[in-house]
Amino acid sequence: MSENKSRLQTLFEQGEFVVTGEIGPPKSASGAGIREHAKHLSGYCDATNLTDNQTAIVRLSSIASGVHVLQAGGEPIVQMTCRDRNRIAIQSDLLGAYSLGIKNLLCLSGDHQSFGNHPTSANVFDVDSLQLIRMVKRMRDEKVFACGEEIKKDEPRFFIGAVANPFADPFEVRVYRMEKKINAGAQFFQTQIIFDLERFDRFMELARERGLHERSYIMAGVMPVKSAKVAGYMKKFVSGMAVPDDMIERLKKAEDQQAEAVEICVEQIKYLKNVKGVKGVHIMAVGWEEIVPTIVEKAGLLPRPQVPGLAQVAG
């Protein structure tokens, strides 16, 4: 085993069905909550995403959050968007993140700033997510900066992730774009939250036709939706998310909506685990992190695997 490889990459290569979680950094300068969440998820998730100013709201930086996860003994997946930094700042932050022990990077465009708490800010997008992926890969494999200048020593060697949204339009384009991301250097994917299993099946079918499941590790994104009210809200206001009516109905009818939410999420995970080409599940429960262990347990995903040579930690 290469000492450079992240725990996440190692697990994929061992053929494990990987479980990742997500922590939304706070709107404050304390990492205590992040460390607490990371400890809480330990033993249930193999790695944890740290979002990068999600929905364009200023939060503790994803890289610093990743360091808090490391300090709590966990395995961070740091998210990096193209919204707020130009190529100079991105590369500088990548050097910094790697120097601090972060090995997994998830590259994405980022929500437009008009959604967040600083809608009047400038919109950077010097590079897009595809160019970002390619840039990170070239830094690692060709040892060059984006400008072509050589990185003389200690290049950052990230395990490169990307996102895929099977529920955005146009539908066919979603698979092409995933392929384009793989060509650019993406090694693993986390999908947008899946509610519409049928559409996801069709998406995976197209992905398999193009052999994408053999060229990357695809993780299916899920989310326990706490109540019918939350589900209704998401259907209405969250872009790129297909929330089916029968799920909202099912939650509405349930005596204990939270228990039902867990039940639905567990059913989804069990289903997704059997979809050919799905190599793991990414559980997004921001704001309800404490439910993750229950879901992982009920979905039959315990115990989490060990990585030889690495202490049994997670986060």
Partner: peptide
Amino acid sequence: CSKRILNGPCGGSQNGKCEVKDVDCIWD
């Protein structure tokens, strides 16, 4: 494109509309 993406469309494109309100998704 609201994010001047050169390899689009991003994941916010829905029914020909951009994730940013009242804008058409040009990548669509």
